[in-house]
C-alpha cells in the first residue's frame, strides 16, 4: 500500500497531466465522420511514433562502449521512424485524394 501511495505522491503532476490529456484525446475525436476514420487512425498511429523520443534519450544516456544499448537504441529509433515517417506520409497520400476532387 505504502508503495502505491508513495508512487502517487511522487508523481502527482504527471498523473494530473495523464488524466487531463486523456480527456483532450477523447474530446478531440468525439465527432469524427466515418469518412475520416481510416486517415485519423493512420495519422494518430504516426503520432504514437513519439516513442522515438524515448529511444533518442536512451541512446544519449548510454556510454559509448555500451554496445548492446546503442544497437538496440538504434533499432528502436529506426523502427519508430518507420512508424512516424511512413505514417504521416501515407496519411498525407490518403488525404490528398480527398482534396483533389473538391477542387
Amino acid at each position: 500500500m505504502d508503495v502505491i501511495l508513495n508512487f502517487i505522491a511522487e508523481n502527482l503532476p504527471m498523473i494530473t497531466i495523464l488524466t487531463l490529456a486523456t480527456f483532450v484525446g477523447i474530446e478531440i475525436i468525439a465527432k469524427v465522420p466515418t469518412v475520416l476514420h481510416t486517415p485519423l487512425m493512420s495519422g494518430s498511429n504516426a503520432i504514437s511514433g513519439v516513442v522515438v523520443i524515448g529511444a533518442i534519450l536512451l541512446i544519449r544516456d548510454a556510454k559509448p562502449d555500451e554496445y548492446l544499448t546503442l544497437i538496440i537504441g538504434f533499432l528502436g529509433i529506426a523502427l519508430a521512424m518507420i512508424n512516424v515517417v511512413g505514417g504521416f506520409a501515407v496519411t498525407n497520400r490518403m488525404l490528398e485524394m480527398f482534396k483533389k476532387k473538391k477542387k
Binding site: M14, A21, T22, I28, I29, V50, I53, G54
Partner: peptide, 20 residues
C-alpha cells in the same frame, strides 16, 4: 524519462484510439 511530450502524445493516441 519524465518526458511530457511522450506522455501526452501517447495518451492522446491511446484515448482517441479507444474512442475510435
Amino acid at each position: 524519462y519524465g518526458n511530457n511530450i511522450m506522455i501526452i502524445g501517447g495518451i492522446l493516441v491511446g484515448a482517441s484510439g479507444t474512442i475510435l
